[in-house]
């Protein structure tokens, strides 16, 4: 079996392991030492047993950008909800819904799915479909005033930092 990258046998997916450990502690709602050890055992064993399902390699660059990205998205979710609430409570006939397509620069599958999730959670847009070649994203907007400006916003605000964090590798 030719392994292209040398993965550590014990910790093939450190991020997954950390997430599993944290979820275990949160589920039990405790920081008792016993649960920490049990959680650590599970966090090591589960990724090892399921390694076959996690073929793709994820390499996260620039963790600072990632943290900033999450803060920006959180803030935008708050703003988006006020905007959407206003749109929902205003008369229906004022709405200008529309579909538009974004040409993706992101190539990493994880970056594309993160971008789609972000678009769904932020101002008046829901991602509807990805083209089969994963180069375009179909988006529905609740109130589309300026298509070019919306696309430009999404590309500079969300896609650029994601590309920096998750380059194709």
């Amino acid at each position: 079996m030719a392994q292209t990258q040398q993965k550590s046998r014990w910790l093939p997916h450190p991020i997954l392991s950390l997430a599993l450990w944290l979820i275990w502690l949160l589920l039990n709602n405790t920081f008792a030492p016993g649960h920490m050890v049990l959680g650590a055992v599970l966090a090591i064993v589960i990724p090892m047993l399921t390694a076959g399902f996690w073929q793709e390699r994820v390499c996260v660059r620039a963790p600072g950008t990632l943290a900033k990205y999450f803060l920006v998205v959180l803030w935008d979710i708050l703003i988006a909800n006020v905007v959407v609430a206003k749109l929902i409570l205003s008369p229906n006939r004022k709405l200008q819904p529309g579909f538009f397509v974004i040409d993706l620069d992101a190539r990493h599958p994880l970056a594309i799915s993160l971008l789609a999730n972000t678009i769904s959670l932020t101002p008046g847009t829901v991602s509807c479909d990805v083209s089969p070649d994963q180069k375009q994203l179909l988006v529905h907007a609740l109130h589309l005033e300026d298509e070019a400006a919306t696309i430009h916003d999404i590309k500079t605000r969300y896609e650029a930092p994601l590309n920096k964090v998750l380059p194709p590798c």
Partner: peptide, 19 residues
């Protein structure tokens, strides 16, 4: 309210996912 009031499926999708 958005789910009940908005005119078509794609606009209705916005209420529940965000608000």
């Amino acid at each position: 309210i958005g789910l009940a009031k908005l005119p078509d499926f794609f606009t209705r999708l916005h209420g529940p996912t965000k608000a």
